[in-house]
Amino acid sequence: MTDRASFLAAIRATPRGEDPGLPDRIQAPDAPTELRAGESPVERLVAETELVSAEPHRVARASVGEYVAELLRASGSTEVALTEDLAAQLVPIRTACEAVGVHADDYRVVATDRARASRLHATVTGCAAAVAATGSIVTTAAGAGRAGALIAPLHICVVEETQIVDGLHALFDGEALAGAGSLLALQSGPSRSADIEKVLILGVHGPGVVHLVIVGD
């Protein structure tokens, strides 16, 4: 078996190619994944969310619980899990769910039983950030868990307007990802495949329906 030392020694023994260097900080690139000058982050997030086939909703803080509960009820979801990154919205959502007869468990509890997790109709998560230019929700292992955002056919993500970052540059260059834990994840719309004759199918291994509930004051 090759060990670390001999593996690396073999690589070090090779000649060194030309090194163009690398700037310490890379400026926000001129890329489709960044905001254009003068664009509103929240409006771009709404537009990109639609482009990736997810559904954006702009909701006032006071009514988030009821709004989410109604989305769940309307979809016929009865087995629901909530993740801890919902933070201050966790209790209002759970309370509102109970009021409309939707049973909402803690994801932490459900996740201990893979079979039970797979029976979930929906998960509701918060996020660590949302990326305006790509319509992405950013979740972490410490927050929504690894599979919290994609284990069920329906995913609702609650995004605070203050969590919206402009583009990928702001996301990876900023502080939004501190304390992510063992996994950092971007998801942009429902799970999809076009493997069979290029026909787009939503909801392959992850959710087929994704809602972004964007919370503002």
């Binding site: 990736v52 993740t83 801890e84 994801y107 932490r108 996740a111 992405s136 292992a141 410490a142 868990g145 690894r146 599979a147 919290g148 994609l150 834990g181 063992s182 996994l183 950092l184 994840a185 971007l186 998801q187 942009s188 719309g189 429902p190 799970s191 999809r192 992850g206």
Partner: peptide
């Protein structure tokens, strides 16, 4: 749709 950046096994209080 999914960009996943993993850094090692489940840590401490992570749910999964």
């Amino acid at each position: 749709t999914y960009v996943t950046i993993t850094g090692g096994p489940r840590r401490g209080a992570e749910p999964d």
